[in-house]
Amino acid sequence: MQLSELIKQAKRGSTAAQQGMFDRLADSMLMVCRRYVKTREDAEELMLDGFYKFFKALPAFQYQGDATLYAWLKRIMINECLMFLRRKNAFVIVSETAAEDMPLEADILDQLSAADIFNLVVRLPAGYRTVFNLHVIEGMHHGQIAELLGISEGTSKSQLSKAKALLQKMLAHKNIAYVKRSTQ
């Protein structure tokens, strides 16, 4: 069944349609949440909170295509994660003005699978990870990130720079490990 049809039925209060939508969207939304929080249990809980808000607000939703639905649901999940990080006080960003752009080396990334990159991103500190996720994966500008997190644009840039530097270090270590393993 198409998503548009599921949304129509779910708006009418059909529990089966709601379950169908949940089954179809749960995995991708869980991955979104897992990028922002470290533990899987927290991510699952946040995903359920996000779906709860989604189904509550569904009657007011105007369907304009699957992309808009995904974007809206993803935004709900990200907001849930950010609220969770604020509640846990894990999201502490030291204000910094100096920012230096540090590009990631493409050849290092090529040697890693998506799962490896994901695992490295999850190991970043909360502040670095959040800004990295919002900028690199969600595609937000620093102005948007600054507004969303309540920080200055410079701080967002510096956090991203440090996150990239740390990722490079981690990738370099991993690369050395790969090299060592391959030479043995």
């Binding site: 379950q19 995995d27 359920l48």
Partner: peptide, 16 residues
């Protein structure tokens, strides 16, 4: 993830 268990949890919240 156990989708059935997760859905039951969500459903109990939605229809409570």
């Amino acid at each position: 993830m156990d989708k059935t268990a997760a859905w039951e949890k969500l459903s109990s919240r939605l229809h409570g």
